[in-house]
Design a protein around this nucleic acid. Sequence first.
DNA 1: GCAAAAGTGTTGGCCTTACACCCATGT
DNA 2: ACATGGGTGTAAGGCCAACACTTTTGC
Lengths: 228, 228
Amino acid sequence: MTGSDGIPAPGDVPAEDRPAVSVDLVVLTILDGKLQVLLVRRRHEPFGDMWALPGGLVRLDESLEAAARRQLLRKTGVSDIYLEQLYTFGDPDRDPRLRVITVAYYALVPVDAVPILKTERTEADIGWWPAEPPMPLAFDHGEIVSYALCRLRNKLDYTPVGIELLPQCFTLSELQRVYEIIMGRTMDKRNFRKKIRGKEWLERAEGTRRDGPHRPAQLYRFVSRRSE
Amino acid sequence: MTGSDGIPAPGDVPAEDRPAVSVDLVVLTILDGKLQVLLVRRRHEPFGDMWALPGGLVRLDESLEAAARRQLLRKTGVSDIYLEQLYTFGDPDRDPRLRVITVAYYALVPVDAVPILKTERTEADIGWWPAEPPMPLAFDHGEIVSYALCRLRNKLDYTPVGIELLPQCFTLSELQRVYEIIMGRTMDKRNFRKKIRGKEWLERAEGTRRDGPHRPAQLYRFVSRRSE
DNA sequence: GCAAAAGTGTTGGCCTTACACCCATGT
DNA sequence: ACATGGGTGTAAGGCCAACACTTTTGC
């Protein structure tokens, strides 16, 4: 069956003329005062021994987001996390073996929510690497990471994205540090507090954090988050 | 060859286990004082006789954007137009026949740049339809159109998107009308002019437009656009 | 008592909004 | 002359950036 306009219906295209479709994940966290991205080491050609984004092929019966969550769970053990579709990269030459179109997602995880990866990476084949400056990655994954960082920064202007990088309770200074790390610049403490106090997504939690020879800090919490 | 993590390399997946990949286009214009979207009438099941977004399968050797431009050229005869990737829709059930993942793009065209479509649609199988209120469309195309409108409105806040809907020379009133139509609300003439005058992407053109029993309007132009 | 981070207000500039009248032309 | 859209300024309020000192604790 062919459309009246000469365009074949999808089912008429031989399956071998179809590209493969994958998802790739830019999983970001804050570690050592820097944005870090989760990478896996490739074991095979092409790009053997290079670092790459975690990802994998989309199964025929799962949605794109489900595929992304499956990869995330497999690599990090975390589920129920902030995940957003980023962009779809489909340059015909991005994989030298065959045509692979990849739908990129990005995820933000509090570093202490990823138990497996809290240890230093030694020579394991998965680990956190600084998101900047860009390092050479397999395929077009460097470009995908840049794109994710760009999106994250824009998004921070109008949504409480920093939320996802902190544990349930946190101090305002910790939140400010997250913002500073993402934006790559320092901010004024009073202005920062003025801006975010009054946001509807923030509320005081009970208790304080005392973690040093100084005044304890009031704890805060995000309203209506996972586990509420 | 199988990855050390048990994940098959893309080439190891039988081609028949791959989804089909298409692009769909949300081509928007302003016509009759409304945002209108270009639709084609389906001639076959499923969704026979319903209206749908123009689109088609991605060829193995072309990039996603190239596929989108090819479809755009085929349906409208226009090339060299503003085109942006929107989102990728991949619900397993979005096409009842087989798994089709579609990468949606949106495009903005000045209505008078689409010669074929300036006529009313009669009973042709392609034509402009008001983008709002939403009408029932084939597949998940209604959702895609909503998404495009949402994106367009957000984008208008910080980029001169309205550009793409106007001919090369235009009056400030015409530009304001574009903004009003996109945003769905009226704006104050003096404030509007204050805001956009001083934008670096706008410059006065020579001449005026006199098209009625009233004062002629100064023409403006966008800097560094196609044909410059 | 001192080191270290927590906490707190005011001011000036800029941007956004609201608002009303005269101008140039065609008929 | 009049009808029609083109064109212009000002004042008030809100938002953002700059800026310095006191408080509470552990040692």
